[in-house]
Design a protein around this nucleic acid. Structure first.
Lengths: 253, 253
DNA sequence: GAGTGGTCTAGACCACTTA
DNA sequence: AAGTGGTCTAGACCACTCT
């Protein structure tokens, strides 16, 4: 493949100005991406091409690209090339007492989706038991759901429910697209969010694969506790959101 | 300097098992750190030592260490060495309608601190004007404050106030340790948080230096709008928290 | 001055994708 | 089969820190 871009002479990098070559190259590429010289989804020149064009070693090129990759600005496909990431139209996701994923996304005029990856009953781990106000080891229903917006992975959620409140939950989940529709129709439960804790974490290997991001891209994690009108805890969940796709908004009304 | 650690033979890395050498080495180091074999604050063996001990090239060692560095597990000091990061005792920071930094930290039994890095009046940028409900270009007081917990950088906050509501703010700020004490005593204002937007961002160069973190470590960003009892916006702020030091908690009471 | 991490080059082999 | 990124080695020079 030929290099289409004009201006790929060799004048560009300056060995004397004190800034490392790879930083200079990263800056050039960052600017070209920002300016749309290489548009989202398009392939960057290969490492060999950049190496030749800027007259630096291929490893120096790799170092430059790795900077951009660690910021999520580009992504690499083995054997295929390095591509400019989609600008990740940001989703303004509301977190409040009553908001639920499906309605939240529909209100934004986008298509919500979900895939149940795991559904089992298990003894409550200590941490989960504490949040649910039950004895450690008591049975809980565990759900792991990967959620999509416009068919793109958006967040991976692990939820725990006391089996006492939601008997048979793991069996019924496949028949619904919305978790909260299920809770209301099958059990007459209307959980209310009572606490959310926001933090930045790096995904597990499995989580990264599910969300379609590299392990070195951080996720926005939200631990939430849901209760009934009586105050009894009904759900403890850990949601891991793709940090490049959303901001989480809380309104203190 | 001699190598103190026992067990630094050469048996460890397996070239055949398919996992890259640098990943294997990263895993070994990660485990040693987790197990306390190398305790926080202590120096890792130098790149040259690791290279010799595990019989791999120094670049392979660097690649392994860079994995850990990008997770904030270790940090490097030029000319000095690579060190295990402090486990960063996590701070449970409450975000609510009325909570303020100083009280928040005092309640946790820790020492709050602050340093005003910038205080100027300037014409409101578009974005700021929108949030404050004023005309773009109208005068606002701009404050940049670096906050500490136990003398360690904790968050960097940029705040904007309409000058009309807080005349002379930038001149008075140096006389107070708590911003909200100032607002109440000098202007009789009791701002209430009405909205917070949480996201993950990478720090600017300057921000990274102030917070004492590398640029490739993400920060937890919180954009907040504060209003008076009348509903009039009085402050728009962007706080960037060290993600390794805190979780932000919201209670929906 | 010795030791450290930071940067750059050169060359090699591999597994994977694409055609 | 050709091209791509992934990994590893070897050797070099630098600026910085420590003592």
């Amino acid at each position: 493949m030929a290099i289409h871009s004009a201006g790929f002479g060799d004048l560009c990098l300056d060995k004397e100005n004190g800034m490392a070559l790879y930083r200079q190259l990263a800056e050039i590429l960052r600017t070209q991406i920002a300016d749309g010289v290489i548009s989202p989804g398009r392939k960057l020149p290969s490492e060999a091409e950049l190496s030749a064009a800027y007259r630096v070693n291929r490893h120096t090129v790799r170092q430059a690209i790795s900077v951009l990759a660690s910021e999520g600005l580009v992504y690499k496909l083995k054997g295929s090339g390095t591509f400019v990431a989609q600008p990740a139209a940001e989703i303004d996701y509301r977190v409040s007492r009553w908001t639920r994923f499906t309605e939240n996304i529909l209100e934004l005029g986008r298509r919500p989706g979900a895939q149940v990856r795991r559904h089992v009953e298990l003894p409550a781990p200590v941490r989960v038991a504490q949040h649910l106000g039950i004895a450690s080891g008591e049975k809980v229903a565990f759900l792991e759901i990967l959620r999509f917006v416009d068919e793109e992975p958006f967040c991976l959620t692990q939820s725990y429910f006391p089996v006492a409140l939601t008997p048979g939950l793991t069996a019924k989940i496949q028949r619904y697209t919305s978790l909260y529709e299920l809770l209301e129709r099958e059990y007459g439960l209307k959980p209310m969010r009572t606490r959310s804790v926001f933090s930045v974490e790096f995904p597990s290997l499995e989580g990264a694969v599910a969300l379609g991001i590299p392990r070195n891209l951080p996720v926005l994690q939200v631990e939430s506790t849901m209760v009934l009108a009586t105050g009894q805890p009904v759900e403890y969940s850990i949601g891991r959101f793709r940090a490049d796709r959303c901001k989480l908004r809380v309104d203190f009304t």
